[in-house]
Amino acid sequence: MKTAQQKPSLVGTGVLLVGAVYCLIPVVWVLMASSKTSSELFTTFTYAPGTSLFSNIADLTAYRDGLFWRWMANTGLYAGAGAALSTLVSAMAGYAMAKYRFPGRGALFNILLAGVLVPGVILAVPQYLLFAELGMTNTYWAVLLPSIISPYGIYLARIYVSASVPDEVIEAARTDGAQDWRIFRSVVLPMMVPGLVTVFLFQFVAIWNNFLLPYVMLGDDKLFPVTVGLSGLLNQGAQQPAMYSLVIPGALLSILPLLALFLLLQRFWQVDLAAGAVKS
């Protein structure tokens, strides 16, 4: 509780604001630099705005018939659909492990937990080797399929169900004659929503952050997510600096939707799940 009598601490507030400024340095820069031509970029003061924000965005849109927007749509597909499917799969598995006693439950859970310890990025090259053997690389599935399974998501869903869905509620539904799937869909799932928003956001960020998987799986740049696409443009920029005036506004446009998503969903977001704690 903040009370009026307590004197504000100038030092503490100052340190916190310095941290905030540190976090803003690259974000304010990308806002300014997006509006610069590639010659202004290296000649005008870093934090001075340029003159060509809209023409940069128009150039980016025109680049190879709107390839950039295709990358954005691909990112939405990989991260959005991938995280949504992942959340559903995690909810089902987490519910089964939290609320049923069945033979093999302990073994299944331990195997899944071992998966938490082998992080997704290290798996990208092994996944590539398998998908190459099956001839499935360079397809949407090559990125989407490995993104759906999330041992960490299952782990979080299990914690959440066992803490927030009382056995009595399930028992009552069963006494009323509801079948297992119906209990899950109409009783358990609605009670899990806050936990599932958290699982969704974690998985969304994990997919969107996993650069290596699409980087190795995809050869056709029409399938790229925006991260792989922009890093390719940056590579070309080493030879032709004109590319920089595409890369920088591209970086700005790519982070805006995610920032909006976070601002929108942050109230539902339960970070304490990450620490394995649930308030009951």
Binding site: Q6, S9, G19, V27, W208, L230, A251, L258
Partner: peptide
């Protein structure tokens, strides 16, 4: 801490980089 001000603003701004993927933040830096 009870004595620190501007916490809402700072919390949001310091958390914001989490929404920026490593590729983009590396590009900016």
């Amino acid at each position: 801490s009870v004595r620190v001000r501007a916490t809402r603003f700072s919390r949001l701004v310091i958390f914001m980089p989490y929404a920026v993927p490593a590729v983009i933040s590396s590009l900016l830096w």
